[in-house]
Design a protein around this nucleic acid. Structure first.
Lengths: 117, 117
DNA sequence: ATTATCTGCAACAAAATGGTTGCGTGTTCC
DNA sequence: GGAACACGCAACCATTTTGTTGCAGATAAT
């Protein structure tokens, strides 16, 4: 049968796909931007920078990081740049986390059975 | 009624809880560690460092980061330190991502209705 | 036309990150 | 007891990240 023992969650392609997404989400400022963007649809950079303690340029950089991870998409509209959430990579990331969690649950059950044997 | 407009995904406590978890997952090496740990239950540091191109000390640092985010728990057993996945923060992170995604879907529908009105 | 906004670019500083090497200590095995 | 193994600690280095300031260009408003 030659069944694969591993479920292959640690393959290089998967890691390279998902790690940058998590890295982009792994900053309070950027996570806040995502949260704000998912509540009120397209927002300009200045709008997003408005209530913030940090500079507009810093916000811009964070937005570029999110955009680099594909989590967000910005489009020029006149003199302002409107940003929206891109839901797909978010869903992929969620799937991956669920997979890890399920995998661990299964391993845990196997371990428990082994110990209690 | 004074209904809250915002769903409150961007509150400081939520951000401070989840950002470190995503940050911990936001590195290919650490994500690989998580994947390996969810496949084969408790692993020592040396075991985890074995097939790796980087040093045992580097692996140790990464494990400490994961531990700091609560994603993993290490326990000394004799001369080796055995690590296990801690599933709870993983589930919390998944929930948060799902919430953001749902929130965005809802906002998107509202936006579409508004435009097509 | 002028002024006020919104953005981009570049240079820079400070701090965090990812990794190394070297050494010391406790534990297991023979 | 001695060798081999697994780990922790500390110093150190290179790179990336996070944030700043200053300035210039395009667009909108009056």
């Amino acid at each position: 049968m030659s069944r694969k023992r591993s479920s292959g969650l640690a393959t290089a392609p998967l890691l390279r796909r998902h790690a940058p997404v998590f890295a982009a989400l792994g900053d309070a400022t950027r996570l806040a931007l995502m949260a704000r963007l998912c509540e009120r649809a397209p927002c300009s950079i200045s709008q997003l920078a408005d209530g913030s303690p940090i500079t507009r340029q810093a916000i811009t950089k964070h937005l570029r990081v999110l955009e680099g991870a594909g989590l967000v998409r910005g489009e020029m509209a006149g003199r302002e740049c409107l940003f929206e959430i891109e839901p797909e990579p978010l869903d992929r990331a969620t799937e991956y986390l669920e997979l890890v969690s399920q995998q661990w649950d299964a391993a845990f059950v196997r371990l428990k059975n082994f110990v209690e044997k």
